[in-house]
Simulated assay, not measured.
Amino acid sequence: MNTDTPTLVFPDDISRAATLIQAGECVAIKTETVYGLAADATNERAIAKIFEAKARPASNPLIVHIASAADMAKWAKDIPDIAFELANAFWPGPLSILLKKQYWVLDAVTGGQDTVVLRCPASKDFISLIQASGTGLAAPSANRYKFISPTTAAHVLTSLNGRIAAVVDGGSAEVGIESTIIDVTQDVPTILRPGPIDDVMLERALGRKVRYAANLGITVPGSAKQHYQPDTPVFLLSTEELERRGLRSNEGVISYSQPRLAGHLDDDCHIQLSDNASEYSAQFYAALHQLDKLALSCIYLESTPTSTPWIAINNRIGRVVAG
């Protein structure tokens, strides 16, 4: 891969992006969740470029992004009614549905598994790119494997500049964390990756019980123990531990409450996020990117609440701090 050629950055030029996709290139583009690294999901060489650019294990499957629920049958078979119920309730949006794959779907996309994960994103640019490209688009987060997910075009360039063809700069992603992944191939719909759409929302839409997977038993995007991590070491502390600790000027803090921090912490090193779970999630990765640029000795995260609205962000935090 030629890393000497800088990645192109251009705003909202979907025709140009589609031309690159059709030529077998990878293009980073904003979804409502994070920036995705899009490539033609039917082109094995294009898919290989995703894995090469990200240095991502080939066994790790990719989500295929489609324009509407009508496209599900192209990619999946034996689709249960519940999948269409979910699509009707949450698509376009941050919900990815795991289904049995059609025989022709590339093993490179599914990680060699007999299932495929599909999503219809709530991003006009991304939907336009799918339609202009004339195919489903595989699109993991547009960052090197296990690094902080990108919510701006600048974040993409932090780790992928020169490794991908282009970035379509669409501003900041609104949701800020990756989609919920739900498995509907089982008797009880099972959340494999927590995300913006939680079990309460799913149960309300379906009128039936939904569970969280206790033991995945299947590899899905975002299931690695260590994930979403900056280069700077990150540690999780309770509010009380943060307040007792004497902080130094070369240490960073991300908090959600307003802890009384002692010591000599520089103002630039303390990022105060919202105490609302969805707003915190939208800001979290950007905060990690901001502090990671400061060459700090470490970053401390204040433990967030454990109530249902915080399940998804706590899942991400747990992987950020995993050693």
Rank of each mutant, 00 (worst) to 15 (best):
M1V: 12
D4I: 10
T5M: 14
T5D: 09
T5R: 15
P6F: 04
P11C: 11
D13L: 08
S15R: 12
A18L: 04
E25R: 11
E25V: 05
C26Q: 02
I29V: 15
V34W: 02
A41F: 04
E44A: 14
E52V: 04
A58W: 07
S59E: 12
L62I: 11
I66R: 01
I66H: 02
S68R: 07
A69C: 10
D78K: 15
I79M: 10
A87L: 08
P92C: 06
P94G: 07
I97M: 09
L99M: 08
V109K: 01
C120K: 00
P121C: 08
P121T: 03
A122L: 12
F126C: 05
S128C: 09
S133Y: 00
G134K: 09
G136E: 03
K146Q: 15
T151R: 03
L160Q: 02
R163V: 06
A173T: 08
A173S: 15
I181Y: 01
T190C: 14
I197L: 10
V210D: 11
R211E: 14
P230H: 06
P233F: 05
P233Q: 08
F235N: 09
T239P: 02
V253R: 00
Y256L: 07
Q258R: 14
Q258L: 10
D266A: 14
F284A: 00
Y285K: 00
Q290R: 13
K293A: 15
S297N: 13
S297T: 15
Y300G: 01
S307V: 08
T308D: 14
N315S: 13
N315Q: 13
V321P: 03
